[in-house]
Computed example of a mutant assay.
Amino acid sequence: MTTEQTDVLVVGGGPVGLSVGALLAAEGLDVRVWERRDAPPSGSRAIGIHPPSLDLFARLGVAAPVVAEAALVRRGIATSRGRTLGTLSFDHVSATHPYVAALDQHRTETILRDRLAALAPGALRTGTAATALHRHRDHVDVHGTGPDGAPVSVRARFVVGADGARSAVRDLLGVGTHGRDYGDRYVMGDFADPGGTPADTAVVDVGPAGVLESFPLPGGRRRYVALVPHHDEEATTRAPDGDAAEAGRASRLAALVRDRTGVAPDAATSSMTSGFRVRRRTADRVGVGRVVLVGDAAHEISPIGGQGMNLGWLDAAALAPVLAGAVRSGSSGPWPRYATTRQAAAARAARQAEANMAVGRPARGLALVGREALLRSALRLPTGGLLASVYAMRWA
């Protein structure tokens, strides 16, 4: 078995790993990206791309195709019990991208794959999984299996673990995580847009039964995310594509949308539904020798608020110049500073996501009236601009 040599091996070829690889290739480094999946990207999954991430994409030369294809969310409306509580505008959150771009994750990944291929042909190795990792003073040896099951091996000066919340790299390092699980359960789905809401507008309804979010998608579609009752276990249980349970979940979500907002999406137009629960996890260590973790491998937060994937991209933006400098200087990498700043950013995003969940839980009586009054005030006062900046991740 021949051992390849490279400056940096990125394990994980999702949106974050592809960005790390493309940024490093743009810096002139030799890079490899191992991705366990061998099929092309598919599914909508995470959709929100915030202004700081779009600025990063501009550096990579992919902002234009992303923006051209995405639905651009320029404002958000908060509602409750059929009434508008206030409006949040993104007009002033960025001089370059005054909106949140909503694009199916598989399209974002495909655009990033194409850019990586242009910068570093052959760098992406699909169907390749890391199975062993050996750290040395000046390099790391990584062994794995290729798409045909044959062994593969790379000797890298640095390794980046961008392989998600169930990171194999983190496990191979023996790094644990700490955090908590939440009782909140949600179901989301993509439907043909039933109309009634402008195509550049997101809606967050915080009525008595709990939050229901609505986001535009390209192609005349709309994403709905709803908090579901604790007793509705079936709504948050995954079902195979085409299974009767999938159709049943689409019908239940469409009914939740209708009951809470009066909008009636057609369940038959559903292209995806997914139930999920929420947890928060933080890696005990972000860097070990010449191996560093990014994205969900380093910090997993609630998807409510849509900031997790963007945190990973901003990790990539912070890490790439550090790695490039370390490769050129022959140093081992100043991980403590990177770890401190990025984990602090993740902690802030996690607290914001927790606040979003708290505001979206069921409420009755005076608690509901108080919540509505608080949101009205926050959205009408100058704090509305601050809230827009916070949601758009201008702090990150």
Rank of each mutant, 00 (worst) to 15 (best):
A202S: 10
S270P: 13
H178Q: 13
V257R: 01
A244W: 00
V257F: 01
E234W: 10
V225L: 04
D184T: 14
F215H: 07
R285F: 08
D184A: 15
A162D: 09
R249D: 03
G179K: 02
R155D: 09
G242Y: 02
G289S: 09
V291E: 12
A192V: 06
R170I: 10
V154K: 06
Y182F: 09
V169P: 13
D181H: 09
Y224N: 04
H231I: 12
T201A: 13
T177P: 01
T177W: 00
A268H: 02
H230V: 14
R221V: 02
F276T: 04
A244Y: 01
V288R: 09
G220M: 11
L253S: 00
D171T: 15
A209S: 15
F215W: 05
A244G: 06
G164W: 05
A226R: 00
A245G: 14
M188T: 08
H299A: 14
A247S: 10
V294T: 08
A264L: 02
R281C: 06
D200I: 13
V154L: 07
R222K: 01
V160C: 03
D259C: 11
A226G: 01
A264S: 08
T236S: 14
Y182T: 11
V228L: 11
G183L: 11
V292W: 04
R252I: 09
D296C: 10
R260T: 07
T269H: 03
P216L: 03
H230Q: 15
V225F: 03
S274L: 08
D184I: 14
F158A: 12
R170E: 09
G295T: 01
